[in-house]
Simulated scan of single mutants.
Amino acid sequence: MSLMIKNTINFIDLFFGYLVSAVMHILLYIFCAVCVFSATSFVVAIPFERGFSLSELDKLEILVLISFVFVTVRFFKRNVLEEFTFWLCLKRYAFISSFTVILFLALNCVFLMVLLSEKGEIGRSDLFEYLDLKYFLFSSVYIFILYAFAPLPTLAWFQNFKDDVKEDIRKSEGEEKNTQSTPDQSDFYTDSEGKTKADSVNIDAADLGSVHGDSSEAASFNSDKK
């Protein structure tokens, strides 16, 4: 009966554990997808707020857009060169985008709190205050993080250093194994003929000889008395 109760509790625990894990993974993927869409649309769409025309863009906005396209293409190309799977590449890109969006929202909340303490109240128009500054700040941080976290090949000298360290560790482990497997030579000696014998055998033989010597002396003493 107790075994049946334990199995039932274990089944219920596993069922709800898998269910909650699946729901949280789905919510996490949705959140990351929203962050990726928000980050890319913010960088690309804000310069065209007055219309989708290149004449509306200034030189700094054009530089930001070109830099964003270049860094994004470089990020995915580096992942392909380092043989990362497409799914892992998307996860890395989503993580970077989510981190940048969360950081930007946190800083924006701090700005709104400071603005609220100064004015006493904030309106909808305050959310779009200093929009150009927020745009360039977010775009610069986002592009910098994408550029910094693109996978890079391992440097040759660093790879050689890692190989040398591994080789030294392998050698030290081999020496320790040889030391442990080598028998203790303190109980062995080499006689005049070059043969190796145990000291314990030598000691026992010496003790046995001394016993025989004592017995022979005792026998000779008794014969002399007679």
Rank of each mutant, 00 (worst) to 15 (best):
L19Y: 03
L14T: 01
R78N: 13
L208S: 15
A218E: 13
T196D: 07
F188A: 07
M113V: 10
Q180Y: 10
S67H: 01
D191A: 05
K6I: 00
P47Y: 02
E173K: 15
F70Q: 06
L155G: 14
V114F: 15
L103N: 07
M24C: 00
F95H: 04
S186R: 08
S181P: 03
F111I: 00
F138R: 00
F37N: 10
A150P: 00
S97P: 05
Q159M: 14
F99R: 14
S55C: 10
E173H: 12
C35G: 04
K77Q: 07
Q180N: 12
S210G: 13
F52Y: 13
R124C: 00
C109P: 00
F136I: 03
F138S: 04
I30Q: 06
I169K: 15
F144K: 02
R74P: 00
I62S: 05
R124M: 03
K225L: 13
T40F: 08
S223Q: 10
G120V: 02
L54Q: 11
S140C: 05
V211F: 11
R50T: 02
S98D: 03
M4A: 12
F70D: 09
E176T: 10
H212D: 11
V201N: 11
V64D: 01
V34Y: 04
F84Y: 12
D224S: 11
P151C: 06
D204C: 10
K226T: 05
I5T: 09
E173R: 15
C35N: 06
F111Q: 08
L116D: 03
S216L: 15
D214E: 10
K197R: 15
L28I: 05
D204E: 15
V201L: 14
E129G: 01
F111Y: 11
G209P: 04
E217F: 12
V23D: 00
L116M: 11
D184P: 03
D224H: 09
T190E: 14
S97W: 04
E167S: 15
S67E: 04
G174T: 09
V101N: 01
E193L: 12
S41D: 10
I62Y: 08
E118D: 12
G51V: 09
V71K: 08
L107D: 14
A22I: 01
D184Y: 07
L131N: 06
D164P: 01
D132L: 09
E61W: 05
V211M: 12
V141N: 02
E129T: 08
K6A: 04
S186F: 06
